[in-house]
Computed example of a mutant assay.
Amino acid sequence: MTGTRTGRRRLVRAGLGVAAAALAGCAAHPGPARRLRLATGPRGGPYNAFGRALARAAAASGQHLEVLPVDTAASVDNLRRLDEGSVDLALAMADVAQDAVLGREPFPRPAGVTALARVYVNYTHLLVPGDGPVHSVGDLAGRPVAAGAAGSGVQVVAGRILRAAGLSGATPAATPAYARQLGLAESVAALRAGTVAALFWSGGVPTPALTALARELPLRFLPLDGYAGPLRERHGPVYTAVTLPAGAYGLAGPVGTLGVGNYLLARDAVAADAVSALLRVVFDRRRDLLREVTAGVRLEPRFAISTGEVPLHPGAAAYYRSVYG
C-alpha cells in the first residue's frame, strides 16, 4: 500500500511540467465553452444525478466548460463508450474501470482511459424480505435474484459475489442462484411483487429508492463483508469492507458489506486544461455534487488520487500538483 501511494505521488509530481500550461490556460480560456460529453447512468440513478449536478455546476463556474450528461446503462457501458470515443468523460465503479484498463473480461483489450478522481464509495446492498427464508448468501441457491442491469457495475459485483459463494453455476454440483438483469426501479418492483428473492444494489447510502421500499415492507440486509478478502485476492484491492450504518433504511444495527470506489474518468485525448478546469469545479462544488448521491462523504484531493491501476490524466496530475503546492 505504501508503494502504491508513493507511485501515485510520483505520478502527480510528474505532471508538474503539464501543470503550468494547463492551469494558466484554465484560468481564462478564450472562445466558446469547451463541450465535454459525460456518460452517466440511467435516469433516477446516482450517476445520473451526479452528472446533472456537475453540468449545472460547470455552467455556473465561469470556467468556460459545458458538461453534457448522457444517459447510459452505467459502468461497463460507460467505459465502452469512453474507449470508442463517443463520450469524453465517464463515471464508473473502480472494479470495472480496472478491468477496462487491464483488458480483462468483459473488455477484449486494454481501454485507453484515464482517471480524474475517485469521487465517492459505493456500498453494496443485498436485501431480502425481512419475513422471508433467506438469511445468508448461501440461501439464494435455486432462487431468482435481481442482479443489476446489463452493462452496469452492479451486475459485475453481484456476479463476483455469487461466484465466490459457489452460486454462479460454474460448479456443476452446486445449485446456482438465478440472476436476472434488472435496473434499480425494476429490481425494487420485483422484490415488492415477490418475483425475486433478493436484490443487489451498489450505490450511496442512503439510496432513496431503497429507503422508500424499507418504509413499505420489512427488509433484511445481508452481510457481505466476509467476501472482501476473497474478492481482493482474485480481483485486487478495489474491494474493501465497509459498514451500512445503524439507522440507514431503519437498520437497528450496523451491517458489514463491500465498498467499491467510483471514478470520474476521461479519454486520453481530452485537453489537460479542460480537465484541470473541470476538477476545479468538482472540488469547489463537491458538497452540492454529492448531496443527492451519498451521505457523510468527504471528497478531498488526498483521497481522490487513489485510483489504483487506472492512471491519472496529465491534466488531473496538474490540478493535484497545484493543490499540494
Rank of each mutant, 00 (worst) to 15 (best):
P311Q: 10
T171H: 12
V293P: 01
A185R: 10
G226K: 12
M93L: 10
R321D: 15
D131L: 09
A317P: 00
R163Y: 05
L182S: 07
P223M: 14
R10W: 13
R104D: 12
M93Y: 02
A24D: 13
G204A: 10
A190N: 01
R287T: 15
P311H: 14
T2S: 10
T207H: 15
L278T: 06
A149Y: 00
L38G: 06
R298C: 07
G41H: 02
Y227A: 00
E216L: 11
I161W: 04
Y320M: 14
L224R: 06
E216P: 13
D83S: 14
E233A: 12
L127A: 06
Y123N: 12
A55E: 01
T40R: 02
D83H: 08
R9Y: 09
L91M: 15
G112F: 00
L140W: 05
S276K: 04
F50D: 00
L213E: 12
V242S: 04
L299D: 13
M93I: 04
P46C: 12
A90M: 06
V76A: 07
G130Y: 05
G112R: 07
L116T: 05
G7W: 08
T124F: 04
V205G: 00
D71Y: 09
P218G: 11
A158I: 03
R163E: 15
A173W: 07
R291S: 15
Y178R: 10
I305D: 00
G148Y: 01
L116I: 02
A295N: 10
L54S: 01
T294G: 10
V154L: 03
R302G: 14
G85L: 00
A318F: 12
P301K: 06
A228L: 14
R285Q: 12
A74E: 01
P208V: 08
N78M: 00
L224W: 12
V242Q: 14
V260S: 08
G138Y: 07
H29Y: 13
R321C: 07
G3E: 13
E66A: 08
W201I: 02
G148K: 00
T211S: 12
L264Q: 05
A158S: 11
M93G: 09
A19P: 02
P144W: 03
Y319C: 08
Y47M: 08
S61A: 15
L82C: 15
G204R: 04
V121A: 15
L126R: 09
